[in-house]
Write a protein that binds this DNA or RNA. Structure first.
Lengths: 224, 224, 224, 224
DNA sequence: AATGAATGAGGGTTCATTCAT
DNA sequence: CATGAATGAACCCTCATTCAT
């Protein structure tokens, strides 16, 4: 469940670590990344001291969850790449499945702080880059065989994924269940349009959004 | 700039009030709705006491900004309705202009707390409802004249707007500038598709998302 | 209403001053001497600025009220001394009437701060001393003619007055109305007892309690 | 020292809790119930955080002290009832001993807030009621055997106790030491007087002062 | 190793007092 | 003069983190 180089942990310590990560993921997702650490400890059923023994501060906990999450999405992406030969289908498939993993990614967008932490984590950064590469490959291939409009690039797909995965807060539960898939599908229909309406801005390449570290440090929380 | 029933305020007090609202809007947008009040005061160039004199707590400040923001968007919507006779063009126009106002709306999605405050404000609620009605009218008209796919409803547009206005955090500034318009345009192309890919879920009506108050109270922060 | 050497005040200023004193007396009595100054201004129907123009700080307001109150009690005491020749009757009369003025004195017991302010006010101090002298005279005379037990002194009567004027907080209104008079009467019956139960401690002279300034400064709020 | 249902506290925590209660009792008595919490923490020799961990707010601390205090007085009352067969002697004994505990009761009269808190505490309320019952029993018995004047009732004794326990603030320390006992003794002599001076008001029954909750809520701080 | 107690810095809010209108 | 706006120091309380049991 984690990719840390955790040398060797007593069985019970290992168990505690996993419970903490799972609890933190749930609590962060539900109440934001600024919840009291004590609440996480409670949700994990451990003492606050134990939580701090495993994760010396909030950052390290966020980092661990982020690594975990990116790794899962990356695995998914690789699997799809291996299995699906039609690039458009692969892209749709990946986006919709990534949507299924959205909860594990979303908290990374909740706070400036969380973002900075993830951006600073080399392991996260690397997974993210590979993910973008895969997306870019799918996009190029789909454009090459004419199934996708040509005025977008791999980075646009990353942007779209980010946008849709954030979810909405204004709808009742049942509608939220389907929301990501529903609006991703609309977006995908838009991506097929040829000729489509001219798009404002310019194609966003994966390089444009690769170096979160620097741009984000500057641009901070200003969002769009 | 505000819609409060502010009976009569000395000129300097009035000026301060406006500066506070403007500063708070900026700071909330930039650093989230939980920033220290002191920071808002500093940004507004007033003492913390002045801030509290005008807005007895964070809620009331959030409420004032929210009322302001919704009012602006609503005015825009009405103006477009009056001016533009082609419903599809009206819809595109409105969405893209609303995007220009996104920063003033976005903070309402930043925290559970902010959401609850806005949902509890009758003036906000009313503006929101009228906004949805206008959207719904545009959608019906556009569908009636064949310029929009029939498997969506007014609430879907509300959802789309919400999603896109949240913005992304992963891109450098110049790209974020255009992001909303760019992806809204893609989405609009998807909305023209006939026949489009079958959409997961069901059409979201404006009634579905009208009563934020209750559904949100239950669903809380879980988001999609 | 005041004894200040207030040179000459415009009629409206004078009116404001009196309204403030009256309002402050009421508000202090009802809510303690630490109420927000703003509340006093509101009760007086003046702006906070006006309040501060007349009384540069809380101390001076407390002082003014205290001087006023002591003066009233002192006038009463003198009048009784002039009118009543039987010392026991004079004493009873005075104590019971002072009880009627208790609200204007009581706040001086509410807070250490108020006490210190009054103790530091020469005018108050002088009125207080004269009051004690009068009490002492009554006591000596009553003891001389055999109507009062001999094992008490003038200071004891000051103590008793203080104690009873503080009132109780545990009773409903109607009972509180009569409480001071009722328990003072009991106390007076005790003071007639000859021979009475031996009293703990020693007679408290007026000298014992004259120099509030010093003893109180040390003993502070320790109360009994 | 406390009657809380404190499940099981680590030894050091227990020790801290007791130190806090003791310190708070002293500080409240000395400086009023509105002293900064920090001062209490300092007096107890603990950090402010520890204080708040044990007592989540000022109320709960006041409540704990109040329960403690009433319990002690009640125990005393019961013990005297068991040991002393002469009702008049029992009464005197009790009043004078309760006087020894006055500091622990007195703060309950310092502020409207403290009073409301105590009134709202069921445990306090119950102890108070039992105390009044005991007093009432003593009064009736003493009147039955002719050792007390008949024109008073149990509630009067409650009133007297309240009044005298409040103490005085105008005397130097050595005199304050004996004050309660001294003036209670005078009062008791008054209570023996047969026939005594007719008392203003009417006998106060224990029922009259039993329901602090309601009457006090209305009458508030107006005191006598 | 796990626990939960202790700590204190930091943010929210109030209010005494000063100052511009 | 009267007014009410502006200010900031002070106090309440929370919570991240450290440390004794």
């Amino acid at each position: 469940m984690t990719t840390d180089a955790t040398p060797r942990l007593r069985a019970d310590a290992r168990r505690n670590r996993d419970r903490i990560i799972a609890a933190a993921r749930a609590v962060f997702t539900e109440h934001g990344t600024e919840v009291p650490m004590e609440e996480i400890a409670r949700a994990a059923g451990v003492g606050i001291g134990t939580l701090y023994r495993r994760f010396p501060d909030r950052e390290s906990l966020l980092g661990a969850i982020g690594r975990d999450a990116f790794q899962q999405v990356l695995d998914e992406a690789r699997a799809i790449g291996d299995r699906e030969s039609d690039p458009w289908r692969a892209l749709c498939d990946f986006l919709l499945r990534a949507a299924n993993l959205r909860t594990v990614v979303r908290f990374s967008m909740l706070s400036q702080r969380a973002r900075a932490i993830l951006a600073a984590d080399p392991e996260v950064e690397q997974a993210r880059e590979e993910l973008l590469e895969i997306l870019d490959g799918m996009v190029r291939a789909a454009q090459a065989n004419g199934s996708m409009r040509p005025d977008v690039s791999g980075g646009d797909l990353g942007m779209i994924l980010s946008i849709v995965l954030q979810g909405v807060h204004i709808a009742p539960d049942d509608i939220r269940q389907d929301a990501s898939a529903r609006y991703l599908t609309l977006m995908l229909d838009g991506l097929q349009a040829r000729p489509g309406t001219p798009l404002p801005g310019r194609p966003v390449t994966i390089a444009d959004i690769a170096l979160v570290r620097h741009s984000a440090a500057v641009a901070d929380e200003q969002t769009v």
